[in-house]
């Protein structure tokens, strides 16, 4: 009996071990073999959350595994990104990235316990430029009219926007500096409340991300004056870009670029697999159709481009960060 059970145990052990070995061989070729967790460093319902949940809805088809969204909000994303940087580098924990927010956090709070090169950037999927937006019946018919009015330091105009220390505020202050405006940036707790304040007539103009203002623009309640991006946006073809309109270089430093990253140290093949899967996903008709309906501007950037963009953003933010203090 004793010998028998020992033998049985040995056999079972051997079976387990060999199964483990087979599994690990498979893992080399067939990553992923279990669900992947995506950390979203913001609360449910925000821009990053919506994007990731949309991706997760379609991910199964391209990854062969489910993508589980896990919200780890707090401290403007710091908590979630710290958790991502410290998570196991096996490719089964990925995280949502958001430029320039990650860069701004690091610039404003140098003691933040993650570094920008703690991550391997897989890809970027969405861009969300900042716009100046007014009520449909506003006295500012064009951005130039606003700029003319806002150049008088005796009569400072209030502008609402997400803040403080947000990408929106940075974008507005960068533009104000380039154009010599004297405006009073009033921080609201998110682009949504800023749009509400604009609709309710508390302010005459707001700086918001495109995605949070678009439903009201399409409904004819709000009007976009100018978009801070290098190219005009498809959903608002008539709205001019800032650089073109004002004829000088205004950096689109506040444009939110959302993508995915893994902690440093994830094997190359896993990164490649993820990158390929998300590339296919962001090209797929079903995903694009739903993204368009939600006002999400899809623009895929691969790993190399995403990495380069982080460096560029870090440089731009560093040059302008004193504006936020």
């Amino acid at each position: 009996m004793g010998t028998y059970s020992k033998t049985a145990a040995a056999i079972t052990m051997a079976a387990f071990l060999s199964a483990g070995a087979v599994n690990s061989v498979n893992a080399q070729t067939a990553f992923p073999t279990k669900p992947i967790v995506a950390i979203v460093p913001f609360s449910p319902g925000g821009g990053n959350d919506i994007l990731l949940r949309l991706i997760s809805k379609h991910a199964n088809e391209f990854l062969g595994q489910t993508l589980v969204v896990e919200n780890k909000p707090g401290a403007g994303g710091q908590i979630g990104w710290t958790a991502l940087a410290k998570s196991k580098a096996d490719g089964y924990t990925i995280g949502a990235t958001s430029l320039p927010s990650m860069v701004i956090i690091k610039a404003m709070r140098p003691a933040t316990p993650f570094a920008l090169d703690d991550f391997r950037y897989i890809c970027n999927i969405q861009v969300d430029p900042v716009i100046w937006v007014v009520k449909a019946d506003s006295r500012f018919k064009t951005a130039k009219e606003f700029v003319a009015q806002a150049s008088n330091p005796q009569k400072v105009i209030n502008i609402a926007g997400d803040g403080p220390q947000s990408n929106v505020q940075l974008q507005h202050l960068a533009a104000a500096k380039a154009l010599g405006l004297s405006t009073n940036f009033v921080s609201f707790s998110g682009s949504g409340p800023a749009v509400t304040a604009l609709l309710g007539g508390q302010v005459e103009i707001a700086a918001t991300t495109l995605s949070s203002a678009i439903p009201n623009i399409e409904a004819g309640k709000l009007r976009a004056l100018v978009v801070f991006s290098s190219d005009p946006v498809l959903s608002l073809p008539d709205v001019p870009t800032a650089s073109k309109l004002f004829g000088k270089a205004i950096p689109s430093v506040g444009m939110a670029v959302r993508g995915l990253a893994v902690p440093k140290g994830v094997p190359d093949d896993a990164v490649a697999k993820l990158e390929g899967a998300f590339k296919q996903l962001s090209d797929s008709k079903a995903f694009l159709a739903e993204a368009k309906n939600l006002g999400i501007m899809v623009k895929f950037m691969n790993a190399a481009e995403a990495e380069a963009l982080v460096k560029e953003s870090a440089k731009e933010v560093d040059a302008l960060k004193d504006l936020l203090k």
Binding site: S43, P44, G45, G46, D49, I50, R53, L54, K57, G192, P193, V195, T196, P215, N216, E218, A219, K221, E290, N293, L294, G295
Partner: peptide, 24 residues
């Protein structure tokens, strides 16, 4: 499209995932 509290913020996200665009 502006949530009244934390629960409706989450519901808002749910609406959007189902392809609805909250707003006017």
């Amino acid at each position: 499209g502006i949530p009244g509290n934390a629960v409706s913020a989450v519901l808002l996200g749910g609406l959007m995932i189902h392809g609805l665009k909250p707003g006017p």
